[in-house]
């Protein structure tokens, strides 16, 4: 019965006796059958951990498409909100300047027309 209990706990402790209650840890120390299961879980755990540093080969074409999509998006949504506000302020400023310039031109043309008509 204790074998079953110990073996049910082994996935959680990954085969280590350290994660087990004292009674179960003591059983693991003396039961060969449970030790086999424990070593299998421990072996799986260390193999999985070692996979962390294995990486798939880079697909350059896909990487390029990711970068391209980001570049396009970055133009639409600038990263920095301060910069976005600044850009908005600049474009608003430009619009105001353009409207002022247009109005000034209209006034100047009217004045010139008046002067021409008077002379």
């Amino acid at each position: 019965m204790l074998c079953e209990k110990v073996q049910a706990l082994l996935p959680q402790s990954q085969g280590s006796p350290e994660g087990l209650p004292a009674k179960e840890a003591a059983h693991l120390g003396s039961c060969l059958q449970c030790q086999v299961h424990a070593s299998q879980y421990a072996s799986i755990a260390s193999s999985l951990a070692s996979m962390r540093h294995q990486v798939a080969p880079i697909d350059e074409a896909h990487l390029a498409s990711v970068l391209e999509e980001y570049e396009t998006l970055a133009d639409v949504i600038p990263l920095n909100p301060r910069r976005r506000r600044l850009r908005k302020a600049i474009s608003t400023g430009r619009a105001v300047t353009a409207v002022t310039a247009a109005a000034a031109t209209v006034v100047a043309v009217k004045l010139l027309t008046k002067q021409r008509l008077a002379s």
Partner: peptide, 23 residues
């Protein structure tokens, strides 16, 4: 740098982390 708006910095982050992210 990317947080300050550098496109180049973000692209470099993508290049350096791509293999890990893909894996």
């Amino acid at each position: 740098k990317a947080k300050q708006g550098s496109k180049k910095a973000f692209s470099e982050i993508v290049r350096r982390t791509y293999a890990d992210t893909y894996t």
